[in-house]
Design a protein around this nucleic acid. Sequence first.
RNA 1: GGUUCCGUAGUUCAAUGGAUAGAAUGAAGGAUUCCGGUUCCUUUGAUUGGGGUUCGAGUCCCCACGGGAUCACCA
Length: 596
Amino acid sequence: MNIESLLTAKVIEAVKECYGAEVESDKIQLQATRKEFAGDLTVVVFPFTRFSKKSPEETGKELGEYLKSHIEEVKDYNVVKGFLNVEISSAYWLEVLNEVSRDSKYGYRHEKSGHSYMIEYSSPNTNKPLHLGHIRNNLLGWSVSEIQKANGHEVKMVNLVNDRGIHICKSMIAWKKFANGATPESVGMKGDHFVGDYYVRFDKEYKAQVKQLMTEKGLDEEEAKKQAPILLEAQDMLRKWEAGDEETVALWRTMNGWVLKGFDETYRLMGVGFDKVYFESQTYKKGRDIVLKGLADGVLYRKDTGSVWADLTGDGLDHKLLLRDDGTSVYMTQDIGTAYERFNEFDMDEMIYVVGNEQNYHFQVLSLICGKLGFAWANKIKHLSYGMVELPEGKMKSREGTVVDADDLMQEMINTARETSQELGKLDGYSAEEAEDVYRKVALGALKYFILKVDPKKTMLFNPKESIDFNGNTGPFIQYTYARIQSVLRKAAEAGTVPQEASVHIALSEKEQQLIKLIAKLPDVVGEAGTTYSPALLANYSYDLAKEFNQFYHDFSILKEENDSVKNFRLLLAKVCGEAIKNAMGMLGIEMPDRM
RNA sequence: GGUUCCGUAGUUCAAUGGAUAGAAUGAAGGAUUCCGGUUCCUUUGAUUGGGGUUCGAGUCCCCACGGGAUCACCA
């Protein structure tokens, strides 16, 4: 039993004993004592004053006295205003340290929780490469999945690739017209970039045609936009695709193949992956039958023109189209269909969609309609919504070409890491390959940390230069601290000292105890996973830990300590701290280099 | 305009309704550097405004102001 639950139980007991009142455990507020006060854990006593009918100070003293005499580990207590600060014995903290040191997977829950999640993230379009916004999506999706796994939940990571529609046809038309049979291989490009270029090429041609129609034929802009020949060609191609035209489907298959191969490379470098990949081309017709059944059941209604709608005005929303006049599906219809199939297939406790906040409305409506259609799983649909990523130069706008490409960005980060590192020459003795591996870890660590440390729902500003700084609240700073710990341990090992379990007779200094306390907090931080910000919590926790270690390291001579048992204890503390950092950062997908 | 999210030091980010709102970075000064690009200390500086609920509000409620997103027979 850890000290928190013991304290909670005893406080309940004390309130009953002293004031004859029953309180529930969730009413007991325990928090880490602020540094400026003596003590380790603080009980907020305000809630009990209504039972004690005494001042907060007096109540705190009575409870403190009870705890002190009933719990061995409670060394002392003090009361400041309405806060009961409890001091825990050093022996307890040392035991915690020893316990943690035995568990290399510290921070992970080892038993299964029995809960299961499906997490959909990434969900790219196959007409252009991934950009900075996708990076936030991918990192969040992957990290949240890892955190849920660490909590003992079963997690299925899935990707729904949007591989059909007019946008794909645009790239296809442009390729047909302008490529002269070129392929990614023939021009030496990544497939997603190659296809993306033709998408841009389409847009350029389209704009030129619209302009031409306006000046030469005197059409107004709206009309010109509808009549541009290249757009008509793309629309025609979509019809052919849907009709299963062989040549069109073959081209579609080839070009999608190029793109997906490119995506795979990006995902690999980013360090994310999926248990299952869905393709919209295989699912886009789903949902239609469900909607028709809803119509038959009177949950939905049909307009004179033939289209099918859901009336959500009763829920403060609008009417939502589900089937067009011609009977075909829209995005919402497909999502209802895929959700239905997924819940049939896996019956998970929660289905989390990691999608940008521009689709908040969509998911609100999705859950609502599924509920109206009578599906029990409607409230298991969760939307992990995240804000846009902006750059110091301002917003990304695809129209203005200010979109930051994911591959380019990662490559630039790696280049920066290489330059900084080579200047400092700390990797001398490493082979070129080993060194490259370190640069990659640092670069991606910088990127991931910077993005994940921010509350997902907030619009954030990504500054590449700041992110790769070796100081401050950054990934590389934490990696650096970790590398230094490894270096100290190597040095110690060379001298023949390998940290063993620490003796319980050692007197702990404040700094040492502080560090142990922080390490002990890791499972709680991971346990926050239900909230959407848990990656941010973990990131900021890792930083606190690294910073605390630096202070600890600065204050004590680890390698020069002459007392063997003290030296052993400090080495052990360093080792455990390093492992905690590694585990916490691991859930963010950030790798720790042993040297950098 | 409707809906919704956000608004915290110069800047980038924190703060389960709890104590004197924390870091980082920037600027100024000082101390230290046991393998490390250090590290530490001091100074500077913030809850958009107004009401309300509460023992207690950056956090919850209402209003105003400012910003983002969304409001397609696109996905």
